[in-house]
Design a binder for these strands. Sequence first.
DNA 1: CTAATGACGCTAC
DNA 2: CGTAGCGCCATTA
Length: 103
Amino acid sequence: MSDYDRVYDYIRAIPAGSVSSYGEIGAATNASAREVGRALRMAPADVPWQRVVGAGGDLLVGKLDPVHAQVQRAMLEAEGVTFDKSRRVERRFFIGAEPELDL
DNA sequence: CTAATGACGCTAC
DNA sequence: CGTAGCGCCATTA
């Protein structure tokens, strides 16, 4: 099992309406954040890549087309995830985020 | 072999 | 709250 497959499996385990970050996935799969991005780039269709966001809740950090970020936001909104004014996912939707520790 | 690049993260200003 | 710089590590030229 490659690190990439482990990343795919982790993402597939993310429940609808929740999101995780590249750093979180990297830590859970023993990979760096960049490797997670590389994995998502060639991810199979059954991987809900839209549930993967940046560390601060940012959509796609910007290495890819801005249009893609729009699509991601639309799909997450369809799952019940809400965003703040700056296109950032609220911390309560993060897996492993503690409600009382909200920044 | 070295250099450049990217679905990122953190710190500094 | 915004941009800029550096570190990170696999892949590509």
